[in-house]
Simulated assay, not measured.
Amino acid sequence: MLLLKELPTSKSLEKFVKRYPDADIAAISDFVNLLRASSDISTALDKLLAKHELLQGRWWVLVLLMRQDDLTSTPTDLAEKAGVTKATMTGFIDGLVREGLVTRITDDVDRRKLLIKLTDAGQQKLDIVLPDYYKKVSALMSLLNTDQRASLLVNVNVLASGLDVMK
Rank of each mutant, 00 (worst) to 15 (best):
G100M: 01
Q123R: 13
A121I: 10
L62F: 06
T106W: 04
V61Y: 01
E80D: 09
D127V: 05
L54G: 07
S138E: 12
V32K: 01
W59R: 10
L2K: 04
K135Y: 03
K18Q: 14
D127A: 13
D107K: 01
S142A: 14
K11V: 12
A87G: 12
N157V: 03
A27M: 14
D30C: 12
N145H: 04
L45K: 10
V109L: 05
V61W: 00
L143E: 12
Q56T: 13
V129S: 01
Y134I: 15
E6Q: 15
L101C: 05
L13R: 06
S12W: 12
T103D: 03
D40Y: 09
D46T: 06
S39Q: 05
L55D: 14
S73V: 04
L2V: 12
W60M: 11
L45T: 13
P75F: 13
Q123D: 06
S151Y: 12
L48K: 10
V97Y: 04
P75W: 08
T72M: 06
I25N: 01
T85E: 03
M1K: 08
V61N: 00
D94H: 13
D120T: 13
V84W: 03
L143G: 12
G83C: 04
L130Q: 01
G57W: 02
P75Q: 14
P75V: 06
L64Q: 06
D94R: 15
L71K: 15
V61K: 01
L13N: 08
A44M: 05
P21F: 00
D147C: 05
V61D: 00
K5R: 14
L7A: 06
R104A: 08
D94P: 02
D132E: 12
Y134P: 09
K51Y: 03
N155S: 14
K136A: 15
R36I: 07
L140Y: 02
S151R: 13
F16T: 10
L48S: 12
G122E: 00
D132V: 13
D69F: 02
G57L: 00
L114R: 11
Y133N: 09
G100E: 01
A27F: 07
A37Y: 09
K81V: 06
Y134D: 15
G162R: 05
S29Y: 05
V63S: 03
R36Y: 14
G57M: 02
L64G: 02
V129A: 02
S39N: 04
L65T: 05
T106Y: 07
R36F: 11
L62N: 03
A82W: 00
V17L: 05
L153G: 04
A44W: 09
L2Y: 11
E14H: 09
D46L: 02
